[in-house]
């Protein structure tokens, strides 16, 4: 797992830990230890579990989100909830001077404040997701599955494209399917390095995405081959867009790390218009064959 995000939250983490410690100190100094027979083990189990789980949630929240208002709201909300859980658990072990002692009051209040903060945070998070989704369109369609993201290009894989095409089929949308292949990619890899090859793939992927329209989707098919789907687009329009992508890639002055001298690349392309409901494997195969002929 990757925890480098946590470093950015060190101040917030210190603050939360500080408050928890001071609460613990207050409880230890003000309360008196109960006799063991008085504690209800089922309660301890339940409340202890809540405490651990809330702690885990807080940890993963901080480990997976960068700084910002949404993160802060969610973290503070969860911390309030955490405090309530902690006090709830502690009063199984400690009894306080009288029934209206202020710690009882502290025990119930933070949880509700925390819930309100988290709800506000979730609302903002929703808005953030809408924005992020706009940013991600052309790389992502209707659903999200991080295990299908290709490591090198950060595009989705061929498997994702298949599920997306199945969705288009179900919706009855006709589409154009296109494939792009970098010419002499293997030779480039041999001449320079595989690391340069990976970097080239990443940059070409970015260029492809930049040249697509909002509803289009690009995925990495395999190796140096990309697959594009353009819904509701006729063959002529697809041809125009593909030519634009090819022109853009032709002008990419890629600099391998070893020489630093620009190397230019060409891509072969093939595309075909598909009626809604065409067999997916068949469609991919057709374009694949066309591309093979175009490349030779």
């Amino acid at each position: 797992m990757e925890f480098s995000m946590l470093k950015g939250h060190s101040k917030l983490l210190m603050f939360i830990i500080g408050i928890c410690c001071s609460l613990l100190l207050i409880v230890f100094s003000q309360g008196t230890l109960k006799a063991q027979s008085d504690s209800d083990y089922l309660d301890i189990l339940g409340e202890g579990g809540m405490l651990i789980m809330t702690g885990l949630w807080l940890f993963f929240l901080l480990a997976s989100r960068p700084h910002g208002r949404v993160t802060l709201l969610l973290a503070v909300g969860l911390s309030c909830f955490l405090m309530s859980c902690m006090l709830d658990l502690l009063d199984e072990f400690f009894s306080y001077p009288d029934k209206d002692f202020w710690l009882y009051w502290v025990e119930s209040l933070p949880a509700s404040i925390g819930m309100i903060l988290m709800s506000w945070g979730l609302y903002l998070w929703h808005q953030e997701q809408v924005k992020l989704h706009q940013q991600l369109s052309r790389r992502e369609a209707f659903y999200r599955e991080h295990s299908l993201i290709d490591y090198v290009t950060q595009l989705y894989s061929a498997e994702y494209m298949r599920t997306h095409l199945a969705k288009l089929n179900r919706a009855g949308t006709p589409y154009s399917l296109a494939m792009l292949d970098i010419n002499n990619f293997a030779a480039f890899n041999r001449q320079y390095s595989h690391l340069d090859g990976d970097r080239l793939l990443r940059e070409v992927a970015d260029i492809i995405v930049m040249n697509l329209r909002h509803a289009d989707l690009a995925c990495r098919y395999a190796g140096d081959r990309f697959i594009l789907v353009l819904p509701d687009t006729c063959e002529r329009e697809t041809g125009e867009i593909i030519t634009q992508i090819q022109t853009a890639i032709n002008h990419l002055a890629f600099k391998p790390s070893r020489t630093g001298k620009a190397v230019y690349h060409k891509v072969s392309a093939a595309w075909q218009h598909m009626l809604a409901g065409s067999d997916i494997e068949d469609a991919i195969k057709q374009v694949n064959l066309k591309l093979e002929q175009a490349a030779n």
Binding site: A158, A222, G223, N288, L289
Partner: peptide, 11 residues
């Protein structure tokens, strides 16, 4: 993952 086979070994 038929695409990997096609890409690396031809059709």
């Amino acid at each position: 993952q038929i695409q990997e086979y096609e890409q690396n070994l031809g059709l």
